[in-house]
């Protein structure tokens, strides 16, 4: 097993765990969304890692290289990033709305049961 891959997987696991911990404990809605972004990043990194091949290069036709990394995860990550951006943009808008109604981003409980 390649060291790069190992390190990358470790980072992925850490990012996801940190993000999850943030979502589970933070009250500030902004922080929750930041945590979610962290998780998103983690998953993106994971996709890249899955497609990574030790010694491979970017999948663009090039006579000098015989080994390419898996191109598909890269395409997926492209999509995933854009989706992440969109969700974040909308999240920010919702937070602005929330803030304009409540004057704070701390969630102290509202609708329940």
């Amino acid at each position: 097993m390649n060291g790069v891959i190992m390190a990358s997987y470790f980072t992925v696991a850490s990012l996801l765990s940190i993000g999850l911990y943030g979502v589970m404990t933070k009250r500030n809605l902004m922080k929750i969304f930041i945590s979610l972004s962290i998780m998103d990043t983690g998953v993106n990194l994971m996709l890249i890692t899955i497609g990574y091949l030790p010694g491979g290069t970017a999948p663009i036709e090039n006579a000098n290289f015989a080994k390419y990394v898996d191109p598909l995860p890269q395409a997926l990550v492209l999509t995933a990033i854009v989706i992440g951006v969109s969700v974040t943009a909308l999240a920010l808008v919702l937070l602005i709305k929330y803030h304009s109604k409540k004057g704070t981003l701390e969630y102290k409980g509202g609708m329940k049961w």
Partner: peptide
């Protein structure tokens, strides 16, 4: 039982996890 739905997303995230 419906107290499970505390209204806090943190709790919901814990449930998810």
């Amino acid at each position: 039982l419906r107290k499970v739905y505390t209204g806090f997303t943190q709790d919901y995230a814990i449930y998810v996890a």
